[in-house]
């Protein structure tokens, strides 16, 4: 028995990937792991519930969208621009990390995570939230609700969310232009 494949081309972390033959039923998570050795997006529930597996899709207008890789086929991402958790920090010519993204830095400063399994998802979700706030700032009094709603779907099982929450709120408040007067 042979597995039916289809040719896939896409952009991941600003690099062109493919054309490459990929089984047509393969999930994005497996493609990232098995074909590209990008193992940062975590396989948690495998049912699209825990959101540890999410990546960013950069849309045509530059806005960001979060997608679950465990339940979305690799071919759905054909022709799209994807940013995995490996693509957030700045790197030097050798690929060594020189500067974490503001979200990653805030999570470190706030000791937001313990085992870290859910962290790639939280980094992804918080980054998408910051992008949305840049486009549509919210009133200060609405901020807590907006953060809760945006990150509610991300499941953490050890630190209990508070430090993730505080890190994101802190970052939003000290980043100009995300909160309306």
């Amino acid at each position: 028995m042979t597995i039916a494949t289809r040719t896939l081309s896409l952009t991941i972390n600003d690099e062109a990937v493919g054309p490459i033959d990929v089984p047509e039923t393969m999930m994005m998570q497996d493609f990232l792991y098995e074909y590209l050795n990008l193992t940062g997006s975590r396989m948690g529930c495998g049912q699209g519930i825990c959101h540890a597996c999410t990546v960013i899709v950069e849309k045509g207008d530059g806005s960001l969208e979060e997608m679950r890789t465990c339940i979305t086929g690799a071919h759905w991402f054909a022709g799209r621009k994807v940013r995995t958790v490996e693509g957030h920090a700045k790197r030097d010519a050798n690929g060594a990390i020189t500067q974490l993204s503001p979200v990653q830095q805030a999570f470190i400063e706030h000791f937001s995570f313990q085992c870290g399994y859910c962290t790639p998802g939280f980094v992804t979700g918080a980054t998408v939230l910051l992008d949305q706030l840049k486009r549509n700032p919210v009133r200060r009094e609405a901020l807590e609700g907006v953060i809760s709603e945006a990150l509610d779907r991300h499941i953490c099982r050890c630190t209990g969310y508070v430090r993730y929450f505080e890190a994101v709120r802190d970052l939003v408040l000290r980043t100009p232009g995300l909160v309306k007067a």
Partner: peptide, 8 residues
């Protein structure tokens, strides 16, 4: 279907 339905 294969992209967004089949995994579940």
């Amino acid at each position: 279907y294969l992209a967004v339905c089949a995994s579940c």
